[in-house]
Design a protein around this nucleic acid. Structure first.
Lengths: 258, 258
DNA sequence: CCCTCGTCTTGATTCACATCAAGGTATGAC
DNA sequence: GTCATACCTTGATGTGAATCAAGACGAGGG
């Protein structure tokens, strides 16, 4: 398994995230935020954006930097405005389980606990807004619509988590990878048709730790899906879905053989 | 496994759940509800209990009866007032993953979706309150404290789900069972000291489907924990924890051998 | 009491995936 | 260009848990 130490990124970028007070990058950052329509912030009216902006702190993280550490005091909530992050938990010997990937519009830190229950790390360059807990709570008190939206978000994440438990507890390697590919192809287009071409932001190691497998098994399973003409692999970070119906059946555990 | 829906089983109790309009079993059912302190209903003041009672429908289910079916229209929310239920998802070929067990005070149905994303079944005799979605939403609108409480609940469930993903994706059989036993020993006593004696409401099959294993592996692992003097098994449904510190270390993946 | 049925335990064997090991490929530094 | 470094792929082998197969135990019924 993956017991070896994971390396950080070297260079000045590791000396801390770039921080901007919300006021420091334009007249009204929230008004121009392209993540707002996709995020819980959409619950707040245009007229109240000043208030929202006043409690948000904009931050940027380089690939590999972590911005939530499991066990640390849970001081902040986060809202991803760009890039992709991985959320994960570790066992003492280094075994890692990635519990999810967060993208533009995702809200992190819902768990009401003294400390964070997971860690979060930037995969590519991540942009986010940070909210201190007290300020977030006062925001919630003032904007019931925000709370409603958060509740809906939490419900959706709960459903996704149950789906992932089914995957981890009961699906084969082939079914797991097929599930991931189907999900990724559906993902960013909220209502649009599923994509045929997928760009993998994450590495094979990330995929393995997300699906509860090893990189070798991921690699072999990719190869097998390709030789079965279900997918194409034009480059290492790209997947083309060639036979979506069959891939979807495999993902749902609905395929006689394997 | 599917005993429910059978008309003509003997005894009136099996002809569907017993239903009481909230008003039909006493002057103020919510005021006397022993689940209220442990549930989201605690967010509602004594003075507003009439309102709460007016939207709740009390129901009872016999062992094996299901009250949520995955894929059915999600018309209701549920609040367990007594007994234990299993929540699960199925694959077409019958593979089952139990995503959790619900007890007194647990709230079900948070996911905001047209249809239920999981099924729920009574293990022993289950008592619950049922809320129709529209009525629940109007209740939420009138009692912001209720919404806050639901959000907190959802956050906790999300944390539990992440913990379970770690278990299913990365822990060994021994670690999984140890984790379950530690959790069960902590469970009902919210702040009280952990129990030494655990009563298993669920069968070996339930445990297996919860931990992503088979009954044979569960049985062997129980035996092994017993021969290692970590637990005692006075009867088939009882477990006594003999060496909690070591069991907890195993559960956390913190034990050199196995 | 014995018999049945459902559940649990134990043993023998198999298998899917992990581990160990080697080589291939892409990228950036120099 | 060469070299170094990640990262990925493929092959050989090992192993933890699944599967297959008996039995054992306990509760309930006749």
């Amino acid at each position: 398994m993956n017991i070896e130490q994971r390396h950080g990124v070297n260079g000045a970028a590791m000396n801390g995230p770039a921080i901007n007070g919300a006021g420091s990058r334009g007249p009204d950052p929230c008004a121009n935020c392209d993540a707002r329509p996709h995020s819980v912030c959409a619950a707040i009216d245009d007229t109240d954006l000043q208030r929202l902006a006043s409690v948000a702190v904009v931050q940027h993280y380089e690939p590999g930097q972590s911005f939530i550490v499991e066990g640390d005091p849970a001081e902040f909530f986060f809202n991803i405005t760009g890039g992709t992050a991985r959320l994960y938990k570790l066992l003492p010997d280094g075994r890692r389980q990635i519990t999810g990937f967060s993208h533009q519009g995702d809200f992190l830190g819902l768990a009401v606990s003294k400390t964070y229950g997971f860690s979060a790390e930037a995969i590519d360059r991540v942009h986010l807004c940070r909210f201190s807990r007290p300020k977030m709570y006062s925001l919630l008190a003032d904007f019931p619509a925000l709370e409603k939206r958060l509740l809906a978000t939490a419900g959706n994440e709960l459903m996704a988590a149950q789906e992932q438990m089914l995957l981890l507890g009961r699906k084969t390697a082939r079914e797991r990878l097929a599930s991931l590919l189907i999900r990724l192809s559906d993902e960013p287009a909220r209502c649009a048709p599923p994509k045929t071409r997928i760009n993998l932001a994450m590495t094979r190691t990330d995929i393995a730790d997300y699906l509860g497998l090893t990189i070798e098994t991921i690699s072999r399973t990719f190869t097998r899906l390709r030789t079965d003409r279900l997918i194409g692999l034009p480059s290492i970070a790209e997947v083309v879905i060639l036979d979506r119906p069959r891939l979807a059946k495999i993902a749902d555990g609905d395929e006689l053989d394997a």
